[in-house]
């Protein structure tokens, strides 16, 4: 992306919600483990609402909570 990546907007990852236990790593950003898909979706949505953030679903099935 070159120069464009240094321009606004700056994305900040606030949290990750995953169903794969070994992707839950302590530290920042917050990584949460969900038992099943509905719970994962719900957790991601609740976090995004609380933090006024956006949600990205990765192809591996994880949810990233991002703020622009």
């Amino acid at each position: 992306m070159g120069r464009e990546s240094s321009e606004r907007p700056n994305y900040q990852i606030l949290a990750i919600v995953t169903m794969t236990r070994n992707r839950v790593i302590t530290g920042s950003p917050l990584a949460l483990f969900a038992e099943e898909e509905e719970q994962q979706k719900r957790m991601a949505q609740d976090l995004a609402k609380a933090m006024k953030a956006d949600t990205v679903k990765t192809k591996d099935g994880d949810y990233l909570i991002l703020r622009v």
Binding site: K41, A44, D54, T55, V56, K57
Partner: peptide
């Protein structure tokens, strides 16, 4: 398409992760 937004077949963003979005 899933959580990805396309306009006239051009990929735009994957920020639409939630069903509501």
């Amino acid at each position: 398409k899933g959580s990805e937004l396309f306009v006239d077949g051009i990929y735009v963003s994957n920020l639409l992760g939630s069903d509501n979005a």
